[in-house]
Protein backbone atom coordinates (compact mmCIF):
# COMPACT_ATOMS: atom_id res chain seq x y z
CA UNK A 1 0.00 0.00 0.00
CA UNK A 2 1.32 3.39 -0.92
CA UNK A 3 1.81 6.10 1.65
CA UNK A 4 -0.60 8.29 -0.22
CA UNK A 5 -3.29 5.65 0.14
CA UNK A 6 -2.79 5.51 3.89
CA UNK A 7 -3.09 9.28 4.12
CA UNK A 8 -6.16 9.15 1.90
CA UNK A 9 -7.79 6.59 4.17
CA UNK A 10 -6.95 8.58 7.29
CA UNK A 11 -8.39 11.77 5.78
CA UNK A 12 -11.56 10.06 4.59
CA UNK A 13 -12.03 8.44 7.98
CA UNK A 14 -11.60 11.88 9.52
CA UNK A 15 -14.16 13.37 7.17
CA UNK A 16 -16.68 10.66 7.98
CA UNK A 17 -16.09 11.16 11.70
CA UNK A 18 -16.71 14.87 11.26
CA UNK A 19 -19.95 14.26 9.38
CA UNK A 20 -21.18 11.84 12.05
CA UNK A 21 -20.33 14.25 14.84
CA UNK A 22 -22.11 16.94 12.85
CA UNK A 23 -25.22 14.78 12.76
CA UNK A 24 -25.08 14.57 16.53
CA UNK A 25 -24.94 18.33 16.95
CA UNK A 26 -27.99 18.84 14.77
CA UNK A 27 -31.06 19.80 16.70
CA UNK A 28 -34.76 19.24 16.33
CA UNK A 29 -37.88 21.11 15.37
CA UNK A 30 -40.22 21.07 18.35
CA UNK A 31 -43.64 22.01 19.57
CA UNK A 32 -44.17 23.86 22.83
CA UNK A 33 -44.96 20.60 24.62
CA UNK A 34 -41.86 18.74 23.45
CA UNK A 35 -39.65 21.78 24.07
CA UNK A 36 -40.93 21.98 27.65
CA UNK A 37 -40.14 18.32 28.14
CA UNK A 38 -36.44 18.93 27.57
CA UNK A 39 -35.54 22.09 29.51
CA UNK A 40 -32.07 23.42 28.86
CA UNK A 41 -31.83 21.72 25.48
CA UNK A 42 -31.46 23.84 22.38
CA UNK A 43 -34.42 23.44 20.04
CA UNK A 44 -36.14 25.09 17.10
CA UNK A 45 -39.60 25.93 18.35
CA UNK A 46 -42.18 26.30 15.62
CA UNK A 47 -44.94 28.61 16.77
CA UNK A 48 -46.64 31.90 16.15
CA UNK A 49 -47.16 35.04 18.19
CA UNK A 50 -50.31 34.94 20.33
CA UNK A 51 -51.71 38.39 19.68
CA UNK A 52 -54.29 38.06 22.44
CA UNK A 53 -51.56 38.11 25.08
CA UNK A 54 -49.63 41.27 25.95
CA UNK A 55 -46.27 41.88 24.36
CA UNK A 56 -43.61 43.76 26.23
CA UNK A 57 -41.15 45.82 24.25
CA UNK A 58 -39.96 49.36 24.69
CA UNK A 59 -36.93 50.36 22.70
CA UNK A 60 -36.44 53.43 24.86
CA UNK A 61 -36.41 51.50 28.08
CA UNK A 62 -34.44 48.56 26.80
CA UNK A 63 -33.99 47.66 23.16
CA UNK A 64 -32.64 44.26 24.16
CA UNK A 65 -35.70 42.89 25.84
CA UNK A 66 -38.75 41.52 24.07
CA UNK A 67 -41.23 39.29 25.77
CA UNK A 68 -44.35 37.77 24.26
CA UNK A 69 -46.41 34.62 24.24
CA UNK A 70 -45.95 32.04 21.53
CA UNK A 71 -48.57 29.47 20.68
CA UNK A 72 -48.07 26.41 18.52
CA UNK A 73 -50.45 24.65 16.16
CA UNK A 74 -51.58 22.34 18.95
CA UNK A 75 -52.73 25.36 20.93
CA UNK A 76 -50.20 25.16 23.72
CA UNK A 77 -48.50 28.41 24.62
CA UNK A 78 -45.32 29.53 26.33
CA UNK A 79 -43.78 32.83 27.38
CA UNK A 80 -40.81 33.83 25.25
CA UNK A 81 -37.99 36.20 26.21
CA UNK A 82 -35.69 37.52 23.52
CA UNK A 83 -32.66 39.69 24.21
CA UNK A 84 -32.56 41.64 20.99
CA UNK A 85 -34.65 44.30 19.27
CA UNK A 86 -38.00 43.18 18.02
CA UNK A 87 -37.65 41.81 14.49
CA UNK A 88 -39.09 44.30 12.08
CA UNK A 89 -41.69 42.12 10.41
CA UNK A 90 -42.64 40.46 13.67
CA UNK A 91 -46.22 41.72 13.56
CA UNK A 92 -46.98 40.55 10.06
CA UNK A 93 -45.28 37.16 10.22
CA UNK A 94 -47.50 34.15 10.09
CA UNK A 95 -45.06 31.77 11.65
CA UNK A 96 -42.00 32.06 13.84
CA UNK A 97 -39.03 29.76 14.17
CA UNK A 98 -37.74 30.42 17.68
CA UNK A 99 -34.28 29.12 18.42
CA UNK A 100 -33.45 28.71 22.07
CA UNK A 101 -34.01 26.75 25.26
CA UNK A 102 -36.83 26.25 27.67
CA UNK A 103 -35.53 27.37 31.07
CA UNK A 104 -36.11 26.09 34.57
CA UNK A 105 -37.74 29.46 35.39
CA UNK A 106 -40.57 28.52 33.10
CA UNK A 107 -40.06 30.62 29.99
CA UNK A 108 -38.49 30.04 26.59
CA UNK A 109 -35.18 31.84 26.36
CA UNK A 110 -34.86 32.68 22.72
CA UNK A 111 -31.57 33.48 21.03
CA UNK A 112 -32.86 34.03 17.52
CA UNK A 113 -36.19 34.63 15.86
CA UNK A 114 -36.80 33.80 12.24
CA UNK A 115 -39.99 35.33 10.93
CA UNK A 116 -41.63 33.23 8.29
CA UNK A 117 -44.10 33.83 5.57
CA UNK A 118 -45.60 30.89 3.71
CA UNK A 119 -43.57 31.62 0.62
CA UNK A 120 -41.29 34.54 0.06
CA UNK A 121 -42.14 34.60 -3.60
CA UNK A 122 -45.86 34.51 -3.08
CA UNK A 123 -45.47 37.18 -0.49
CA UNK A 124 -43.56 39.42 -2.83
CA UNK A 125 -46.23 38.91 -5.40
CA UNK A 126 -48.92 39.76 -2.90
CA UNK A 127 -47.12 42.95 -1.98
CA UNK A 128 -46.67 43.71 -5.62
CA UNK A 129 -50.34 43.11 -6.34
CA UNK A 130 -51.25 45.37 -3.50
CA UNK A 131 -49.10 48.02 -5.07
CA UNK A 132 -50.66 47.54 -8.45
CA UNK A 133 -54.13 47.81 -7.00
CA UNK A 134 -53.14 50.77 -4.93
CA UNK A 135 -51.72 52.52 -7.96
CA UNK A 136 -54.82 51.69 -9.90
CA UNK A 137 -57.00 53.11 -7.17
CA UNK A 138 -55.13 56.33 -6.60
CA UNK A 139 -54.53 57.01 -10.26
CA UNK A 140 -51.51 59.00 -11.19
CA UNK A 141 -50.74 60.90 -8.00
CA UNK A 142 -47.95 58.68 -6.95
CA UNK A 143 -44.53 59.52 -8.15
CA UNK A 144 -44.68 63.28 -8.21
CA UNK A 145 -45.48 64.08 -4.64
CA UNK A 146 -43.09 62.96 -2.03
Amino acid sequence: MKKIHIILLVLIAGAIAVLISFLQTTTTYDTVQTAMEKPGKFVHLMARWDKAQPMEYDALKNPNYLSFTAVDTLGKSVKVVYHNPKPENFEISERLVLKGKYTAEGYFDCSSIQTKCPSKYKDDMKAAQKNAQHNAATGSANTETK
Binding site: L60, P63, N64, Y65, S67, V81, H83, N84, E105, Y107
Partner: peptide
Protein backbone atom coordinates in the same frame (compact mmCIF):
# COMPACT_ATOMS: atom_id res chain seq x y z
CA UNK B 1 -32.96 44.27 31.91
CA UNK B 2 -36.20 42.82 33.15
CA UNK B 3 -36.72 39.20 34.05
CA UNK B 4 -33.74 37.04 33.21
CA UNK B 5 -31.38 39.89 34.02
CA UNK B 6 -28.51 37.47 34.47
CA UNK B 7 -28.20 37.88 30.72
CA UNK B 8 -25.26 39.71 29.30
CA UNK B 9 -26.03 43.32 28.59
CA UNK B 10 -27.75 43.70 25.27
CA UNK B 11 -25.93 44.29 22.06
CA UNK B 12 -28.19 47.07 20.84
CA UNK B 13 -28.32 50.66 21.91
CA UNK B 14 -31.17 53.10 21.61
Amino acid sequence: FGPGSDQKPGENLT
